[in-house]
Structure formats: C-alpha cells, structure tokens
Amino acid sequence: MRHSHPTSEDLQALIDAQMPLEGPLLPILHAIQEAYGHVPEAALPLIAETLNLTQAEVHGVMSFYHDFRKAPAGRHVVKICRAEACQSMGAGALSDAVLEKLGIGWGGTTADGRVTVEAVYCLGLCACAPAAMIGDRLIGRADAARIDAELEGAA
C-alpha cells in the first residue's frame, strides 16, 4: 500500500487507467482501494467528473457494496466466515472468542489500529470449516488460538 494521502494526480491516474474498460466504476473503486486501503473522500468528485456522474451517484454505488471502505482499516484485517457451513463447525464460538479477546465488535478496529475484524459470508472453504482470512492468507479449520498466533506473528 502507498501513503494514505494521495494527491489528486495520483487518484486521477488510477481512474484514467481504468477508463478503457466497459463499465469502469467498480474497477476504479477497486484500484483506489487496493492502492490506499480505502477510497478517500477526495476521490469521489474526480470519479464523478470523469464518468459524468453526480457525486451522489458515485457515493450511492460505493455504499452499496460491502467491500469499499471510506476510512482505512486496521493494519491487519481478519475476516471470519459467518455463513452456514462454518456455523455448523463452530464459527459462532470462534468469532465470539476472537472478538472478545480483541475487545471489539464486528467491523471494529482495535484502539491501537492494529486489527480490524469483519464478517464474510463464505470463502469457498466450506468443506474445511470454519474458515477465516487474515490479509490474503486463508485459514481452514480455524480456531481462536491459530488466529491469535497468526496475529502475534504479524507486527
């Protein structure tokens, strides 16, 4: 990830790079979020201008999707699957334990900005449930101790 205060030139370059695509708005939002960990407010007027939309329309699209963040997440994002197959293997107890240990709720970030925990509905690991993801690392048959250890290991 680059610095989290991009200039409008930085943002415009990311927007322009997606413009040859048909239906470029989601790719634009993804590209900005991938670069900066969130979609900064400052990007909305630029996107609106480039795509000939109102800012309200861009905001409406962004807010429809669970993936896009208005503010940066913690340094480590833990996603824990809440869907049925994982529930059948104790995902409820797993997420309770993880959230309690960190002292946060779903979607919350620890006070030191280190960890954010989010719910996810299926990671396609339903035959080795419960499933979780830390950053890009997938964990099958996850338990709280394992998630703890992974987070300890990471700075």
């Binding site: 239906g23 470029p24 989601l26 429809f64 996810v120």
Partner: peptide, 24 residues
C-alpha cells in the same frame, strides 16, 4: 471483473448492473 462483496450480485440482473458500474 471483480465483485465487491454483495451476495445479491449473484442474481443475474443485479450482476449486470454491477458490471455496468451501478448499484447492484
């Protein structure tokens, strides 16, 4: 094209809206 975490976008017309860059 990468989705953005909305289950309903698996519904084909919602998917098409999403593909076009609209709310799903």
């Amino acid at each position: 094209r990468v989705g953005a975490g909305a289950y309903v976008c698996g519904e084909e017309t919602s998917l098409l809206n999403s593909l076009e860059g609209k709310r799903g």
